[in-house]
């Protein structure tokens, strides 16, 4: 096993982690600020991917497709927030789970109605396809490298937004004490819609970016949603920093586990059973990681007490 292969897999894990961060950031913001658990976040990821695929099909421009994914997911998020979600802030988690589960059914079947059951394809544009040579002689797909870059830029922008801007101050204040900031004259319901739409836009962007690697299909958001839950449970709910650390941890663990566990078991098992044991264990690895984190820190790596 060469060092190049390991480095390549580390980059793959990082790319996966960065995507998870885009999903997890929205979830953790919405939970931190509004106290809402949103199962329909994966549906917004799907909306972004479908919008991108549709616009790319019409115009042929990947950049426009990305813009469309952001806009469509943000709009869907804002509409859903105004129509449904804002009635759920004062409800218990059970109602939130059910209502957002209902939203998933509506979004998934609605998308199937409009676009049909067959997957759509979103092509990587020419200027981003093909490999690039990295220092050390690694050949790595330019598109995946671009995803890592976009993810890191978004993460930096989000930290800046939360830490340095007026909106960020209001968001943090909303997390700490919502009555108080309402009393200080901040339009809290507008702020909530904004935060929800922001989270939705990030999920939509993730959907579009991943849609160009995988296929764009109904239900694509749900596996990612559950991974994003694992990420924020590990990172600590409400913490953007926790979401970033958790996402990279989960991305690396999952990717490296899938590649190296079968090889590891191959050292002392016969090839067929090594592959199957390794693959089974690799699929469970991130959940084991989550269980371990919970044993040590029940409220996640960066979570406060809940």
């Amino acid at each position: 096993m060469s060092i190049l292969l390991i480095l390549e897999q580390v980059l793959n894990g990082l790319q996966f982690g960065v995507m998870l961060f885009l999903m997890a950031a929205g979830l953790t913001l919405v939970f931190g600020v509004m106290g809402l658990i949103n199962l329909a976040h994966g549906a917004l990821y799907m909306v972004g991917a479908f919008a991108a695929a549709a616009v790319a099909g019409l115009t042929g421009s990947f950049l426009l497709a990305l813009v469309a994914s952001l806009a469509a997911a943000a709009a869907a998020g804002a509409i859903v927030e105004v129509a449904v979600i804002r009635r759920l802030y004062d409800r218990d988690h059970l109602d939130q789970v059910l209502a957002t589960f209902a939203l998933i059914l509506i979004f998934s079947e609605g998308t199937r109605w409009i676009f049909g059951s067959f997957p759509l394809f979103l092509d990587v544009p020419d200027y981003l396809s093909g490999p690039v040579s990295l220092p050390g002689g690694i050949e790595y797909p330019l598109y995946r490298l671009t995803i890592i870059a976009i993810g890191l830029v978004v993460a930096a922008a989000l930290f800046w937004l939360i830490a340095r801007t007026r909106i960020g101050i209001q968001i943090r204040a909303g997390e700490a004490d919502r009555e108080m900031i309402a009393a200080l004259g901040v339009d809290i319901s507008k702020l909530y819609t904004l935060v929800f739409a922001l989270g939705a836009a990030l999920a939509g962007l993730a959907g579009a970016l991943v849609g160009a690697i995988q296929s764009v299909q109904v239900g694509m958001g749900e596996p990612v949603l559950i991974l994003a839950f694992v990420v924020i449970v590990i990172g600590g709910i409400g913490s953007i920093k926790g979401a970033l650390v958790g996402a990279v941890l989960v991305g690396l663990t999952d990717t490296l586990g899938k590649v190296f566990l079968p090889q590891f078991f191959g050292l002392f098992l016969e090839p067929a059973s090594a592959t199957s044991v390794g693959a089974s264990l690799a699929s469970m690895l991130i959940y084991i990681l989550m269980a371990l984190v919970l044993l040590v820190r029940p409220s996640g790596l960066y979570g406060g007490s809940t």
């Binding site: 658990i37 559950i226 959940y287």
Partner: peptide, 17 residues
């Protein structure tokens, strides 16, 4: 060991595992 929204997400995650 956890409660509230953590409990929901963790039971979901173990099911998915």
């Amino acid at each position: 060991r956890t409660s509230g929204v953590y409990f929901i997400m963790i039971t979901l995650a173990f099911g998915q595992m």
